[in-house]
Design a protein around this nucleic acid. Structure first.
Lengths: 232, 232
DNA sequence: CTATTTTGAATGAGCGTTCAGCAAATATGT
DNA sequence: ACATATTTGCTGAACGCTCATTCAAAATAG
């Protein structure tokens, strides 16, 4: 009694998360998926696994299952587990950078509006998901002992920090504030990272409340430039 | 040609870190160490390993080597790797709580002085070490998927948060500030956690600079209560 | 001597990696 | 058109390594 199974029926194989399914759907399902599509699908499955089981318990088997594909698949599309993880982090870093880049574009040329946009976009639906925050945090935990991760985790990198600092400097000049811009920038950036950390830990904190807290900070720091509703 | 090695010459066995050596020295070295001393010694070695290799690469072999003891030792004093890690986190959480508790005691009864003390003690030499920050971060990375860790990582727990909130509330009333105390407290606590994260990542940031940034925050939030040198 | 602590070799489970082979898609020949 | 060969994507069993755990024996303490 031998059942001949129809293969590659991804819909049947397993319940995939929306993200994985979408990644697989950008082109056709099954064999027709291109190399890049498969890679993306596996990256999404990796984020899922990191979020669900944490870094240390993320296995290639779990990633493959999550993607609805077979065991050997990762070593076919990526060379090793390590390379998959790096590609995943790279993807998130790129997405993050693109997000604040775009936000800055749309903000116009007023410094206050730009700073507001920069803070707000960190709490954007697209970026600030439970699963992505969890994945970020998983990498943070390993970053200190892995130079490669450390470099990529500084997606909040030099460039970002410089822009932030310049904006704080400008607002200080405009408003005649008294603080030290370096310390202020550092404290503000750190605050946003800390809010991410707390969002991930997941008590009762929501995206909205976290954003409100960040805004509260902006208000006391730059009273002449902001209201709770936005830049003046 | 058989060399008969003198055993238990810990000084010879391996270069132990100062922390591990100290833990082993609180009572006599060698076999005479009491159960509690050994446990402490192993916990210190665990912190070392977490800091050096990260959570996912911390092995019992590495911990045992770090403590200058043999392979099976952890399963004798702790029951399992998991229990060792939990004990380690528990130790750090207790130490952290004791630290801010003591700081609060010494601060007198002025709210401003208490808040200053609470912020300052987070950047204390004893707590804010590279190795301990790294260990904290390692646990944070795994916390989301492990309820036990999550509970202990909230060492910055409800009690701490409540005190913090009450102090902010008091200062607001005293100074007639306009902010929302909940948001303010959240942003401030988050900022300190974020600063820890950055200290751990280790760019050029020093304890002093991080503390200065936190102070900068206090200054803009409570201008009537603080100067850069301390509470008024 | 008895009890306690420590050792280190043995065990086995879990996991990343490899790879021979299958199947779908595409190219080539007739 | 059809048959055949080649390429490409994928599978899953097998392999070997790492590491937590176990435990019998040794070392030490009392």
């Amino acid at each position: 009694m031998h059942l001949r199974l129809k293969k590659n029926e991804t819909a049947v194989r397993m319940k995939l998360t929306p993200e994985v399914r979408e990644a697989a759907d950008t082109e056709k399902r099954g064999r027709k998926a291109s190399k890049e599509t498969r890679r993306q699908q596996l990256i999404e499955a990796t984020i899922d696994s990191l979020a669900k089981r944490g870094y240390s318990e993320t296995t290639l088997a779990d990633v493959a299952d999550g993607a609805g594909l077979s065991r050997g698949i990762v070593n076919f599309h990526f060379e090793s587990k390590e390379k998959l993880l790096i590609a995943t982090l790279q993807f998130m870093a790129d997405e993050y950078a693109a997000n604040w880049g775009a936000a800055l574009e749309k903000a116009g040329d007023k410094a206050a509006a730009q700073l507001w946009a920069l803070v707000a976009c960190d709490f954007d639906r697209k970026i600030c998901t439970k699963r992505k925050l969890a994945a970020w945090c998983a990498f943070w935990g390993e970053a200190k002992s892995r130079p490669t991760y450390q470099a990529l985790c500084g997606a909040r990198d030099v460039k970002y920090q410089d822009i932030f600092l310049a904006l704080c400097q400008t607002l200080k000049d405009e408003g005649g504030y008294a603080y030290d811009p370096d310390g202020m920038t550092l404290a503000l950036c750190a605050s946003m990272e800390g809010l991410w950390l707390r969002l991930m830990m997941g008590d009762g904190l929501t995206r909205e409340k976290a954003f409100a807290a960040a805004v509260e900070y902006l208000l006391v720091a730059f009273p002449k430039h902001f209201t709770r509703e936005g830049p003046k």
